[in-house]
Design a protein around this nucleic acid. Sequence first.
RNA 1: GCCGGGGUAGCUCAGGGGUAGAGCAGCUGAUUCGUAAUCAGCAGGUCGUGAGUUCAAAUCUCAUCCCCGGCUCCA
Length: 645
Amino acid sequence: MSQVNITLPDGSIRTFPSAVKGIEIAQSISEGLARNALAIEVNGEIWDLSRSIQQDAAIRIFTWNDKGGKYTFWHSSAHLLAEALEALYPGVKFGIGPPIENGFYYDVDLGDRAFGEEDLLAVEKKMAELAKANNAFQRSEVSKADAIGYFTQKQDPYKVELLNDLADGSITFYKQGNFTDLCRGPHIPHTGLIKAIKLTNVAGAYWRGNEKNKMLTRIYGITFPKQKELEEYIHLLEEAKKRDHRKLGKELELFAFSEKVGMGLPLWLPKGTILRERLEQFMRKAQVKAGYDPVVTPHIGGKQLYVTSGHYEKYGKDSFQPIHTPDEGEQFLLKPMNCPHHCEIYKVKPRSYKDLPIRLAEFGTVYRYEQSGELHGLTRVRGFTQDDAHIFCRPDQVKEEFVKVIDLVLFVFKSLGFENYTAQVSLRDPDNKSKYIGADELWERAEREIQEAADERGLKTVAVKGEAAFYGPKLDFMVKDALGRSWQLGTIQVDYNLPDRFELEYIGSDNQRHRPVMIHRAPFGSMERFVAVLIEHCAGNFPLWLAPEQIAVLPISEKFNDYAKQVLDTLKDRDIRGFLDDRDEKIGRKIRDAEVSKVPYMLIVGEKEAAEGKVAVRKHGEGDKGALLLSEFASQYASDFAMPS
RNA sequence: GCCGGGGUAGCUCAGGGGUAGAGCAGCUGAUUCGUAAUCAGCAGGUCGUGAGUUCAAAUCUCAUCCCCGGCUCCA
């Protein structure tokens, strides 16, 4: 056998006399690496460490510190979970068990057996026991016929179904202990590396993600090479739960829900309303600057409006049903979108090419019927307000306008400190074009323009197929919540279809009629979802300009209530929001309550301050900042209180 | 909508066939205080809702509503 040249990530080359295993390469580098190695990347493909490399290759050894290492570890953990389940529940049928961003899951069919949270502990225990056995993950190549034979005999119909879609010659099995699974791999060397195991939750999941299929039981878990890392992870989760906007929204009295009003219909409480209105003012100001014209339209629209737009055909059945008038038999729909109304505004008079672009903006409240199981705090609701606008422009203006909107979205994100977002180009599902309206050529053009605009602003994008709106592709800005769930906030969409359907026109310089192009855009997305993500982002400690209450004036005792009142009034005159805590409580108590309710500044006033016209400034989370003249405080902190622009 | 879990005072939670509990919040009184909880007293619940089993149901059964975790969906 000829020698093998292995190129390491640093570019150096090691030569081995014959085929070499990943683990041997690791050993040749260092004992420590060999001990921590989980998998190896061979020419871009991840392999088991025990697999022989026959030819020259560029490699990279994965440990727990690499994403690839974690994925391999969790993938193997999923197999361990399956092994435990088979040991505890003979006859269990297996679906798929992949690694995910934080751990892994396995979808199983437990027959009629009910499986609840309590059962997780028993499975967890079994997994730990099996892990200790240090069973190696053994790879074997199998023919398709043998593979089908194995799972048919084992009565694992889901595996057989998966096998039917695989090509003969590329099928591998992995075995650890008594458990054999159909699997492409790779896996970690042996189960003993899995030291800490936590099964986190059970959920239903449709087989192959199709709601027409049987619902399997999905068991989620996470594992670590060290117990301490599991403890840290659990601690992290607990911290994340404290930021949950549903919890903070209740504690800080920002919003509430009522069964009588209806599920998914948020009630904005006074403090939440201040927050929301401040965001609206911020956006209004930015939009005036960017050349938008505010408009207002009703909450309902005639059915024909949505028949024209195509929304009725697409979503009519899955929407709130039409409202009927008692006498004339008219039908109205709660508006699920603002665009049709805005199209009608465009049409109120003939438009010239010189008028374009026309940018119509509205904080438009829309109502969408969401399945009950989908509702989630403020992030997924049935009634919400979009910071919507529609830009009607000439085809030659699309890219320039799109770029301007990207700038606006980035300005908003920057002003609010959102740094960890993903810009997602949402494209059509090429395998299911019937879900969409409009000509291929226009879709391709729109997709190209979005990508070009994003590139022009140096935006790093990921393209995701099947995520487009039914009338056009989108550029979506995705942000994660405290628990790692991804939500779409800002969105920008190019639309050649609605202008067609509404027969929008403008007179060009050639004196001919032309179709304008529409850009739908919402930098926040919706006020509800944006506020939800904002709450989690800052853990309820809002930027000063947004805080519902910016200052709390805390008199040391009743004797200084009058002075405290003067302080508050002076600051209110300067548009600073605050309140006076004149309860018969000790200062420690007043401070504690203000700290807990996350008021950014506490102004403590006692004998000294009253005599000298000062305030003792205490900053939330930081403590005493010393005394200042009231006028000094107002001017010194003025810029912090102001809205960014 | 589907699978699993849950709903007890305004909030956070205990109790699990035999008179409904705590802490915090609230109210009243005392206290007038210098940087994260002053003390005392009082009040507060048809145990989500509706049926059923039982001498007796917060507790057991069923249905239903809402909430939580996922799945599917998301104009």
